[in-house]
């Protein structure tokens, strides 16, 4: 798969759609942010860390630190940056998970050495695709709750930060999260 899992235009559209980011030059910024996320992930992987874990949220934090100065014309503050990055993260992961599933259906081959990791990744990929679909259904019914999920799960944001982005109280953010979690869990448990 190439690094253009999402085209720059798609990324730009995503960011524009959220309203978290602004400005006419999003097309300049979007590939930067995407490339930054990718680069960071790559460097994390090549550092051969014993646990090999990679937190998507940690990535977003790093990306923020790197890009904060250079892209600040395009978002209001730190939390809005995260919000945009969370949206991007969600779509990048979902997009990848979908492609992965298609590829798997095609080949069916699994590298035995990687079987454990592969199983975990496969599980996560399925989960992300299902979650995304459920989240889209939730958005139809309660857009705000779906946004809270996106910001918290994909962006690793705190209730207070979410509250700031969505102009709600921290308590509301927490209640939305709890409700959405129960709702999504129920949806995913459906046969």
């Amino acid at each position: 798969m190439s690094s253009s899992a999402l085209s720059p235009q798609q990324i730009t559209d995503l960011l524009a759609e959220t309203g978290y980011w602004r400005g006419a030059q999003l097309d300049e910024v979007a590939p930067l942010v995407y490339e930054e996320l990718r680069r960071l992930a790559h460097s994390y992987m090549s550092r051969e860390r014993p646990d090999h874990t990679l937190q998507a949220t940690a990535l977003v934090n790093e990306a923020y630190l790197r890009l904060a100065e250079r892209t600040k014309a395009h978002w209001q503050d730190r939390t809005h940056f995260f919000a945009g990055a969370a949206r991007m993260m969600r779509h990048i992961l979902v997009d990848h998970a979908r492609r992965r599933q298609r590829a798997k259906r095609g080949s069916g081959a699994v590298n035995l050495e990687l079987i454990e990791t592969a199983a975990l990744v496969q599980e996560q990929a399925e989960h992300v695709v299902d979650l995304n679909e459920a989240l889209e259904r939730l958005a139809q019914l309660d857009r705000r709750a779906s946004q809270v999920v996106e910001l918290k799960y994909f962006g690793g944001m705190s209730y207070d930060e979410i509250a700031e982005v969505l102009s709600i109280s921290g308590i509301t953010a927490r209640r939305d999260w709890e409700f959405a979690k129960a709702w999504l869990h129920k949806e995913l448990a459906k046969p």
Binding site: T117, V121, A125, V128, K181, W183, L184
Partner: peptide
């Protein structure tokens, strides 16, 4: 569902992210 959802959506899909970004 709310009672059962304790471990649900706690960890981000780290391995998946590693794959997509680290490939």
């Amino acid at each position: 569902s709310g009672q059962e959802a304790d471990g649900f959506m706690v960890d981000p899909p780290a391995q998946l992210a590693a794959e997509v970004f680290g490939e």
